[in-house]
């Protein structure tokens, strides 16, 4: 049987480990973008690489804004601190879609070939979440859970 102090200690370390997951995902997105843009430049040319870079930037901003929206939403739901207005939260949520649609429209007008790169870049958060899942599985196995 595990002593109480050891159980509490392991719970605290796992809490701190999981609380840093979002920052790890953000960092993974940056690292993956820095990997994919030169790779697509070498393999598919500058048009696709431009699309990937733009898509990665939009995905990163989108993820960051989503975190802010959820944070404000949680503040409003728990009513801690100065709860932000619901209208502002809805406007910020709509602004994300406006940003994505305007970037897709602009890139479609300038260079339709870059649109495939843009889509590839927009899937960056999914790749980052997959990396985080793999990392968490590795840590769980290393800890012997």
């Amino acid at each position: 049987m595990m002593p109480i102090s050891a159980t509490l200690n392991s719970e605290l370390t796992s809490d701190s480990f999981y609380s840093h997951a979002l920052s790890r995902i953000s960092r993974s997105m940056l690292v993956l973008a820095c990997m994919f843009v030169p790779l697509s430049l070498m393999s598919h040319g500058w048009r696709i690489a431009l699309g990937v870079a733009l898509g990665s930037a939009i995905a990163y901003i989108n993820f960051h804004w989503l975190k802010r929206i959820v944070h404000r939403f949680a503040e409003r739901a728990t009513e801690t601190g100065s709860s932000p207005s619901g209208r502002r939260i809805v406007l910020l949520a709509l602004l994300r879609y406006v940003l994505m649609a305007s970037a897709a429209y602009a890139i479609l007008n300038v260079s339709p070939a870059s649109l495939y790169g843009l889509f590839a870049g927009l899937f960056l958060p999914v790749a980052a979440i997959a990396c985080e899942a793999a990392y968490e599985a590795y840590v769980a196995l290393a800890r012997g859970i």
């Binding site: 999981y18 979002l22 993820f63 989503l66 975190k67 959820v70 944070h71 949680a74 958060p125 999914v126």
Partner: peptide, 11 residues
């Protein structure tokens, strides 16, 4: 809950 919600919304 915030973490789970963000992951769910992104996916």
């Amino acid at each position: 809950i915030q973490f789970a919600l963000i992951l769910g919304l992104v996916l």
